[in-house]
Nucleic acid binder design. Structure first.
Length: 488
RNA sequence: GACCGGGUAGCUCAGUCGGUAGAGCAGCGGACUUUUAAUCCGUAGGUCGUGGGUUCGAUCCCCACCCCGGUCACCA
C-alpha cells in the first residue's frame, strides 16, 4: 500500500490525475473481442475496466482488463504509445481502473487483443485486491492462490465480486430472477405494492421480531416478520391482485439456511383458492427458472422443472410412510412411533407438533423434485381456511418442497373475522404465557376483515431459498450480497 | 448449545519431536518488443487469533476465551 501511495504521488507530480471523472467507451470487453471475430485485425475500440493481470517484457507489456462481464487482453508497445507514457505504466498496479483505446488484433498465440494506442488511468487502486492467477486447462479455469476465505469473501463482498466473475454472474442471475418474477406477476395483472417495514404489531408468521423505537411517537416499533397482514388489507381495499418483494426480519439464529434479514415474495389474489395458486406457483417458477438458466456461468445448474408438479396429500402421505393411520392412532402409539423414527424430545411436544416432526422426517426430507404437499392439519395451519367438503380438521393449504427444503407456503386465506379473532386471541394467550414468537390481537386487521375480504389465495416464497435451489447453492450467505455478520 | 476441524506474510498454504518461522503468487529493484500461472536474477515483508500457565526458553505443550467452517440440536 505504501508503494501504491508513492506511485500515486509520482503520477500527480507528472500531471496525471489518478482519479478520473468520466470515460466514454465504445465496447465492453466481450464486445471488443466479438468485434474482431475471426479476423486478424479489427476496428479501433475503446474499453474500460480493471487491470487483473500484467506481464511486462521490457519494451512491451501484456495485461488483461476485466469489466462487468468479460475480459480482454491489452498489448502495450513503447514504440506505439511513446516513451513517456510507456514509462508511466510502471506506476500502474493490478486493480487499477483504466481506459484504453486501440485497434483489435490477434496475437501469435491467437488471443484477441487491444493494441493500445492511448491509455488513461481512471482510478488508482491503493489496496491490493486478492487476485489469484488463473489458467485455462482443457477448457476449465484453474485458479492459483484464489481468494477463498469464505468469511472474508462475505465481509468484503466488493473484493469477492471484483476478483470473481462467477460471483458477479451469480448475483446478476439473482437480479434476473426477481425481474422475471415481477414481469410474470405484472403480466397477470398484479400490482406491486410497498407495505410497512416498521410495524406497531408484528404478525403473519411465528418468529421473534427485531424491536426498535420511534422517538417522536415514543413507542416501540417492530421490523416486519411477514408482509401478509398488510397485503390482505389491500385485498379488502379492492386491489384484487397484489404482490410485494421485500425484506422480512426475524431475530433468530444464523446458519446455512437462515439470515436475520431475507427476501420474501408474497402475492395475493382475490377470488382465487389454493388450487389456482398452485398453478400460479408452477408457471412463476418455470418462468423464473428459464430466466436464470439463460445466465452464463450460472444457468447450467438450474434444474429442469416439469409441470404439473406432483401433488401429495399431507395425512395420507404421512400415514403411508409411517405405516399407520396417523389421525386415528392413539396418542401413546403415535409417540412410540415418533421416538422410533428419531424425533427428539417427543414427550415435550404437542400431538400436532409430533405429527409435524414425523412428517418432516418421513416425507419432507425425502422430496427431491418440486412437489406440492396439500391439505394440512388445522393445528399446523392457523391462517388457512377449512378444507371444503373434506374431513374435519383439514385446511386448504399447500407447501412446495424440493430437495428436502420448503420453497413456498400458501393458503386459501381465512377471511372470517370471527374465526380470525379467536385465533388471534389464542395467540395472545400464548404470548401472555411467555411465547415471544406468538403475536397479539391486531384490532386494525380485524377491522379490515370485518369490512369483508373476498375469497383470496395467498402465497409466500422465500426468494433466497428459491435462488439457492435454482443455482444449487448450499449456503444462504452465498446468495446474499451483504449477509449479516458479527462485527470484525 | 454439543462435537469435530481450523486461525502462521496482501492471497493460498507449509513448518517448527519446544530454541522467536518458510514456499508460491502478489510487492519492490533489474533483464527482456507477441506474452498469457510469462521467464530469469536480486530483494523486502510476519505482535504465528487473544489472555494465562508449564519451561532457561512457547507459534508449537496445557488451560480459558474469541473468531471462522462443518455436522448435529434448536427454529412454522
Amino acid at each position: 500500500m505504501q508503494a501504491r501511495r508513492e506511485k500515486l504521488e509520482r503520477l500527480r507530480a507528472a500531471g496525471v490525475e489518478p482519479f478520473g471523472y468520466s470515460f466514454d467507451r465504445s465496447h465492453t470487453a466481450t464486445e471488443a473481442v466479438a468485434a474482431l471475430g475471426d479476423a486478424d485485425e479489427g476496428p479501433t475500440v475503446t474499453v474500460a475496466g480493471r487491470l487483473v493481470s500484467w506481464r511486462s517484457q521490457g519494451k512491451t507489456a501484456f495485461a488483461h482488463l476485466a469489466d462487468m462481464d468479460g475480459r480482454v487482453q491489452l498489448y502495450f508497445r513503447r514504440d506505439e504509445i511513446g516513451d513517456e507514457v510507456f514509462a508511466q505504466l510502471a506506476e500502474y498496479d493490478l486493480g487499477d481502473w483504466v481506459g484504453v483505446r486501440g485497434a483489435m488484433m490477434r496475437t501469435r498465440t491467437g488471443e484477441a487483443t487491444v493494441k493500445v494506442s492511448h491509455v488513461e488511468l481512471l482510478a488508482k487502486s491503493l489496496r491490493p485486491l486478492p487476485l489469484g492467477k488463473e489458467q485455462m486447462v482443457d477448457g476449465t479455469l484453474v485458479r492459483y492462490s484464489a481468494f477463498s476465505d469464505t468469511e472474508q469473501r462475505a465481509r468484503q463482498r466488493y473484493a469477492d465480486l471484483a476478483v470473481h466473475p462467477e460471483v458477479r454472474a451469480l448475483f446478476r442471475a439473482r437480479s434476473v430472477l426477481t425481474r422475471a418474477i415481477r414481469s410474470h406477476l405484472d403480466g397477470l395483472g398484479y400490482l406491486e405494492v410497498e407495505t410497512p417495514v416498521l410495524q406497531p404489531l408484528y404478525g403473519g408468521a411465528a418468529a421473534r421480531p427485531f424491536i426498535t423505537h420511534h422517538n417522536t411517537l415514543d413507542m416501540p416499533l417492530y421490523l416486519r416478520i411477514a408482509d401478509e397482514l398488510y397485503l390482505k388489507r389491500l385485498i379488502v381495499g379492492g386491489f384484487e391482485r397484489v404482490y410485494e418483494i421485500g425484506h422480512d426480519f426475524r431475530n433468530e439464529g444464523i446458519d446455512r439456511t437462515h439470515n436475520p434479514e431475507f427476501t420474501m415474495l408474497e402475492f395475493y389474489e382475490a377470488f382465487a383458492d389454493y388450487r389456482t395458486m398452485m398453478s400460479r406457483v408452477e408457471s412463476l417458477l418455470v418462468n423464473a427458472a428459464d430466466a436464470v438458466r439463460a445466465i452464463p456461468l450460472v444457468g447450467e445448474k438450474v434444474p429442469t422443472l416439469v409441470t404439473p408438479f406432483p401433488r401429495i396429500e399431507w395425512v395420507p402421505s404421512l400415514s403411508q410412510a409411517a405405516g399407520v393411520e396417523v389421525m386415528a392412532v392413539s396418542d401413546a402409539e403415535l409417540r412410540t412411533l415418533a421416538e422410533r423414527i428419531g424425533v427428539p424430545k417427543v414427550a415435550t411436544l404437542s400431538r400436532p407438533k409430533v405429527l409435524d416432526e414425523m412428517f418432516q422426517e418421513l416425507v419432507e426430507s425425502k422430496i427431491q423434485v418440486p412437489t406440492f404437499v396439500v391439505d394440512y392439519p388445522k393445528e399446523l395451519s392457523p391462517l388457512a381456511k377449512p378444507k371444503r367438503g373434506g374431513p374435519a380438521g383439514i385446511t386448504e393449504r399447500f407447501e412446495l418442497f424440493a430437495r428436502g427444503k420448503e420453497l413456498a407456503n400458501a393458503f386459501s386465506e381465512l377471511n372470517d373475522p370471527i374465526d380470525q379473532r379467536e385465533r388471534f386471541e389464542a395467540q395472545a394467550a400464548l404470548r401472555a404465557a411467555g411465547d415471544d414468537e406468538a403475536s397479539g390481537v391486531d384490532e386494525d386487521y380485524l377491522r379490515a376483515m370485518e369490512y369483508g375480504m373476498p375469497p383470496t389465495g395467498g402465497v409466500g416464497i422465500g426468494i433466497d431459498r428459491l435462488f439457492m435451489y435454482l443455482t444449487d447453492t448450499p449456503n444462504i450467505r452465498d446468495v446474499i450480497l451483504f449477509p449479516t455478520m458479527r462485527p470484525e
